[in-house]
Simulated assay, not measured.
Amino acid sequence: MKILTFKKTKDSKDEVGILDSGAKKIISLNSLGIKVPSMQELIYKWDKKTEDTLLKAIYQKEGEFLIDEVIKLSPIPHPAQEIICLGINYLEHAKESAKFKKIAFSGKREEAVYFGKRVNSATPDGGNIPLHTQITQKLDYEAELGVIISKDAWNVKKENAFDYVFGYTIINDISARDVQIKHNQWYFGKSLEGCTPMGPWIATKDEFPTPPILEISSYVNGQLRQKSSTGLLIFDIPYVIEELSSGMVLKAGSILSMGTPSGVGMGFEPPRFLKNGDVVECHIEGIGCLKNTIKE
């Protein structure tokens, strides 16, 4: 099922809903007697009874609100913790990254690279991404698979990793390349306000094979930039959950962003960084499309 966060009007409270079987209308969880103020709370309280209630409603109840007539929010508008991101987790992106930085690349990755992305407020599908010209001239896009953790994960083995996955979403890991290089680390350049588009919803894990091998792509102004598959991840979901949970608790509702394939702006010659008015679309098979406009 696809679960989203929305508002009926600008001044109304956030609500959580599911798409009905026609995928054009939203069924509010409030109408089903499931009183949760946020997606985070739904994940905390998720159980078999809740899942069965929602699955039944999808096929027996027509949605109350047309999806185009509500205000869509990011599925988790205000993450409780920083998003844990994977750096250079596709081989071809590792090559283009090294080329841009003018450093040697051995052709293999021995260890995963993790970094935190600070997100005060995630930008929803249809929202604007600030250009931040006061501090960057090299804003870039990165289409990524987002993994939502379903329950507290501690010392999880690879073979049990998907027991701790709630579902998947799309993340555009907007990055200020010049800020990254200036500070010789990624945290600041990845954490500018408004630079974490996420959505348009969470697709629960039951909609996908295990592991989810999905086409992933991005477009800028309708031009294809990235095209790959999550089957090409260097460090996959079970590896990441096992490694991270061996030393830290991944709390329910935690978000993992699994890295981006090649084709980002810095990989072109000359580089193709984002400009005012650019429209960026990130697609992942089975989830949908996350579309945003760059706005100064």
Rank of each mutant, 00 (worst) to 15 (best):
C85T: 13
C85S: 14
L86F: 12
G87K: 13
G87C: 08
G87N: 12
G87P: 03
I88A: 14
I88T: 07
I88G: 00
N89C: 04
N89Q: 07
Y90D: 08
Y90N: 07
Y90I: 07
L91H: 13
L91Q: 15
L91N: 13
E92Y: 12
E92H: 15
H93I: 11
H93G: 09
A94S: 15
A94G: 14
K95M: 07
K95S: 00
K95A: 01
E96N: 10
E96M: 03
S97G: 13
A98T: 03
A98K: 00
A98P: 09
A98V: 03
A98G: 09
A98C: 02
K99R: 12
F100V: 01
F100D: 13
F100K: 13
K101T: 00
K101P: 02
K101G: 01
K101Q: 09
K101S: 00
K102H: 09
K102W: 01
K102T: 10
I103W: 02
I103L: 15
I103Q: 14
I103N: 02
A104G: 08
A104V: 09
A104T: 10
A104E: 15
F105P: 05
F105Q: 03
S106P: 01
S106H: 08
S106A: 12
G107I: 10
G107W: 05
K108P: 00
K108R: 03
K108H: 11
K108D: 06
R109F: 01
R109H: 07
R109N: 11
E110C: 01
E110A: 06
E110L: 12
E110H: 05
E111D: 14
A112D: 08
A112Y: 01
V113R: 09
Y114C: 04
Y114S: 08
F115C: 06
F115D: 02
F115R: 05
F115T: 11
F115K: 13
G116W: 06
G116F: 07
K117F: 07
K117Q: 07
K117R: 10
R118T: 15
V119M: 04
V119S: 03
V119A: 07
N120D: 12
N120R: 13
S121H: 13
S121K: 15
A122E: 07
A122I: 04
A122P: 04
A122H: 10
A122N: 00
T123E: 14
T123G: 12
T123Y: 11
T123I: 11
T123L: 11
P124T: 06
D125W: 04
D125R: 01
D125Y: 06
D125A: 04
D125S: 13
G126D: 01
G126A: 02
G127N: 08
G127R: 10
G127Y: 05
N128P: 00
N128F: 05
N128M: 05
